[in-house]
Design a protein around this nucleic acid. Structure first.
Length: 495
RNA sequence: GGCCCCAUGGUCAAGUGGUUAAGACACCGCCCUUUCACGGCGGUAACGGGGGUUCGAGUCCCCCUGGGGUCACCA
């Protein structure tokens, strides 16, 4: 299904963070472009001056970079069809407006907001669809000039077709027919002197030579409007591909009350970009071949609009988390170390001027920990005991593993035994400790659990012998003796 | 409410007239095991309802129901 000269776009408005729904739409556009050797355009839709912010713009750009979705044309990098921020394209829109005005495809409307609201209310009461009444549709030139003269600022409306049907040829939905009576003369130019979304978007798609519009389902009902707009502009009609929406678990539109909804929030929550983008691919698309884990490279290979589902998908964080743990296990330790580096610095677990040996040790540490991490935060937060001796012991663990009267003495013996373990590797340590366990005629756990608690203060963690090898001989000995002392003091206090 | 879209387990989904209706996540067992994870094995669980068409419908048609979207000087 190779398409010639494919140009697609994603046009977020910087009124908030990049939403995962938007990210998925962008990803599908991007995949389609990559698959077909086309061009992916990023355009910033900031015509809503009151809600657009520079901070949101930055955040969106950052989110895309983090996800690895790059654009061939757009802000920061430019392109032949720029500028790529609508707020910088105002003269273009004004030009098109004047052209349409001359061609009488657009007309000024002087109705007040109050009038329109009253019309709407009236229609609602009578059970009719609220549509623009057409009050200003047939004003004479003289009437228009009079309104202007008395200081009224008009909005401009498109003369939309009022009879017949508009067929939207959608690649996923098939042919969808809309009665033109349903479309009214919608506003293309606001009184504040800014284009509306419908107008700016169509002008841009036209001027930027967009061939395929891949967007969320919610725009399907807007499409006849856009077709009317394209026709008025004298533009060719692009292909439409409306992809299903992403819903919250209660099947309502995904919103803040459902938890994290932005790419940025997942980033801070310790989700890896490859996990998020993999998960996004699986919403509304099936790669086939029973595949779930799909890299970006494979996704480009496998992507096919014909395999996009028609129905909305409910967002399931559990599956995202599963993918994330998969990628945590698979990740290169060096990269993970880099990702947690700043956080570890901040906690003073490490210092910036680190030796070669220390760096190698950190890599080993990450490699051991990442196996059981589901999340970057697990790796980031739960490893303090490798850097600092435990200040207290898990309460439940103490109750369970520090109660036997022989334990303190055994821990001291272990500390002693470690003295002769060489090399100080997990294998050698295990051999020595197993021997001691056998001599004592106790079960492995009776020694292993208290040892773990002594060394980490916790009852959970990596294999004990790996942990010990990582901590090193003297640190293990120090902590074992400290634990034994702590038990002794505690015992005395209780007497 | 008008218009439009959609409908396979709890969730993501395969399926394009004939299948024991895949697979994944989640859940539940069992195994592995020094803990927590990982991993391995197994299990529970679905074609929303009703009419047609057909020798035969998850697959085609109609109705109903349910869910979603949209009807702004927001995008």
């Amino acid at each position: 299904m190779a398409e010639q000269g494919v140009r697609v776009r994603f046009a977020p408005s910087p009124t908030g963070a990049l939403h995962i729904g938007g990210a998925r739409t962008a990803y599908f556009n991007w995949l389609f472009a990559r698959k077909n050797g086309g061009t992916f355009v990023l355009r910033i839709d900031d015509t809503d001056t009151s809600r657009s912010t520079e901070a949101s713009y930055r955040q969106i750009i950052d989110s895309f970079r983090w996800l690895g979705i790059t654009w061939d044309e757009g802000p920061e990098i430019g392109g032949d069809y720029g500028p790529y921020r609508q707020s910088k394209r105002l003269s273009l829109y004004r030009e098109e407006l004047h052209r349409l005005l001359e061609e009488d495809r657009v007309y000024p409307c002087f109705c007040t907001q109050e009038q329109l609201a009253a019309d709407r209310e009236q229609a609602q009461k009578e059970g009719r669809t609220p549509r623009y009444s057409g009050r200003c549709r047939h004003l004479t030139r003289a009437q228009q000039e009079h309104e202007m003269a008395v200081g009224k600022t008009p909005v401009y409306r498109l003369r939309a077709p009022s009879s017949g049907v508009t067929i939207v040829k959608d690649w996923i939905r098939g042919d969808v027919a809309f009665d033109n009576e349903e479309i009214d003369d919608f506003v293309v130019w606001k009184a504040e002197g800014m284009p509306t979304y419908h107008f700016a978007s169509c002008v841009d798609d036209y001027k930027m030579g967009i061939t395929h519009i891949i967007r969320a389902d919610e725009h399907l009902s807007n499409t006849p409007r856009h077709i009317a707009m394209f026709q008025a502009l004298g533009a060719s009609i692009p292909y439409f591909i409306h992809i299903p929406m992403i819903l919250a678990p209660d099947r309502s539109k995904l919103s803040k009350r459902h938890g994290a909804t932005s790419v940025d929030e997942y980033r801070t929550a310790g989700i890896l970009p490859e996990a998020l983008i993999n998960y996004l691919l699986l919403l509304g698309f099936s790669p086939g071949e029973e595949r779930e884990v799909v890299s970006v490279e494979q996704a480009i290979e496998l992507f096919d609009l014909r395999r996009v589902t028609k129905h909305a998908a409910v967002y399931d964080v559990k599956k995202l988390e599963w993918l994330n743990s998969h990628y945590m296990h698979a990740a290169n330790p060096d990269r993970l170390l880099e990702l947690v580096w700043d956080s570890w610095l901040e906690r003073q677990w490490i210092t910036a001027d680190i030796s070669r040996e220390q760096l190698a040790w950190l890599r080993r540490l990450v490699a051991v920990i990442q196996e059981r991490s589901h999340n970057l935060l697990d790796l980031q937060d739960d490893v303090g005991y490798y850097f600092v001796a435990p200040e207290h012991y898990d309460v439940k663990g103490v109750r369970k593993h520090f109660t036997s009267p022989d334990t303190a003495e055994r821990l001291r013996t272990v500390a002693n035994i470690l003295q002769d373990v060489a090399p100080f590797t997990a294998l050698a340590i295990e051999r020595a400790i197993r021997r001691f366990i056998a001599q004592q005629e106790i079960k492995g756990g009776e020694l292993i659990h208290p040892t773990r608690l002594s060394l980490s203060g916790l009852t959970v963690g990596p294999g004990l012998f790996d942990m010990m090898a990582l901590l090193g001989r003297s640190e293990c000995q120090r902590r074992l003796l400290a634990a034994a002392d702590w038990m002794g003091q505690r015992g005395e206090l209780q007497i």
